[in-house]
Simulated assay, not measured.
Amino acid sequence: MSNILEVEDLHVSFHTYAGEVKAVRGVHFTIGQGETVAIVGESGCGKSVTAKSVMRLLPSPPAQYKQGSVKFQGNNLLDATEKDMRRIRGNQISMIFQDPMTSLNPTSKIGKQIMEAILKHHDISKKAAAEKAVEMLKLVGIPQADKRFYQYPHEFSGGMRQRAMIAMALACSPRLLIADEPTTALDVTIQAQILELMKDIQKDMGTAIMLITHDLGVVAEMADRVVVMYAGQVVESGTVKELFAHPQHPYTMGLLNSIPRLDMDKNQPLSPIIGTPPDLIDPPEGCPFYARCQYAMRICKHHDPDLEKVKTNQWAACWLHHPMAHKRVSS
């Protein structure tokens, strides 16, 4: 499988009155054609900043791409001009934003908003664009698409707004779809429908998906591979099967232990991760998880471990995998 996206050593900072916030610090990952890769981690770990960096949607200033590359189909998007990015956004790379109500224009009809992307990137008539927009609404399962085409966002339910966002994102058949918390504001029934819809569309269109979420249930349902982020860094990555069965970083273990499972005893308490993430204005010199880690060693405080291969399809940034470590991560 060839890679459609390659993010290498990405560093992104925000310059504020309080100081430089190092939001993303040396992120590496790849996404293959037709593959779903989930980026997971708690709030503030850099997931959405990474996603918006791929689309070059961060305002500069205050954002600054310090170093690294974001290669889409072999071309570094960080070197692309704004004119080049306007040709790519919504056409070759599309994004489903976290809150469809704030992402959709409340003063514009749904059909017109879907037509905008089609007319922007394709040399077709307004009539043909309108027919394509109705077709996309039908594709995402919106009933009475001919009628809904003329309605405003406030006339749609939350689930239908999210479907309309997906229709808009897929209108130009993108090679890569970035989904930033696509089911956060939805109830579990609608969430399941949206995830099933995304899988069906991916199967039909062969679109690669970059899924940004903190919901490990969604990851288990959707993803082929997982990238776990903490304090702006990748601390573990691997296939869904291996990462869920044999987590290799204490942070990943903590995430998995903090969610309920069907095989748990009803009286068994959940195990939250104690403490808070570090301040990224002044990040620690060693492992960023040091202060919250039950396995922490002296070296962890002063030296940040590299992301290294620990299993066939699994990488982790943890000193516990060093041969001289006094306690190894259980596998």
Rank of each mutant, 00 (worst) to 15 (best):
P61F: 00
P61E: 00
P62G: 07
P62E: 13
A63E: 05
Q64L: 10
K66S: 05
Q67F: 04
Q67M: 08
V70E: 05
V70R: 03
K71D: 02
F72I: 06
F72L: 10
Q73R: 15
Q73I: 04
G74M: 05
N75D: 13
N76G: 10
N76S: 09
L77H: 05
L78D: 12
L78Y: 06
D79H: 14
D79W: 04
D79R: 11
D79V: 15
T81E: 00
T81A: 06
K83A: 13
K83R: 14
K83V: 09
D84Y: 08
D84R: 14
D84I: 07
M85K: 03
M85I: 03
R86L: 14
R86E: 12
R87T: 09
R89V: 04
R89C: 03
R89L: 00
N91D: 15
Q92E: 15
Q92L: 09
Q92D: 14
I93T: 01
I93G: 00
I93Q: 02
I93D: 04
I93Y: 02
S94I: 10
S94R: 11
M95S: 07
M95A: 10
M95K: 08
I96E: 13
F97G: 12
Q98P: 15
Q98E: 14
Q98G: 13
P100H: 08
M101W: 11
M101Y: 13
T102I: 07
T102K: 06
T102S: 15
S103L: 09
S103H: 10
L104A: 05
N105V: 07
P106S: 08
P106K: 10
K109T: 15
K109G: 02
K109S: 13
I110N: 04
I110P: 03
G111M: 02
K112P: 00
Q113V: 05
E116G: 01
E116Y: 03
I118T: 03
L119W: 02
L119A: 07
H121A: 08
H122A: 08
H122L: 09
I124H: 01
I124D: 00
I124G: 05
S125F: 10
K126M: 10
A129R: 09
A130M: 04
A130F: 05
E131N: 11
K132Q: 05
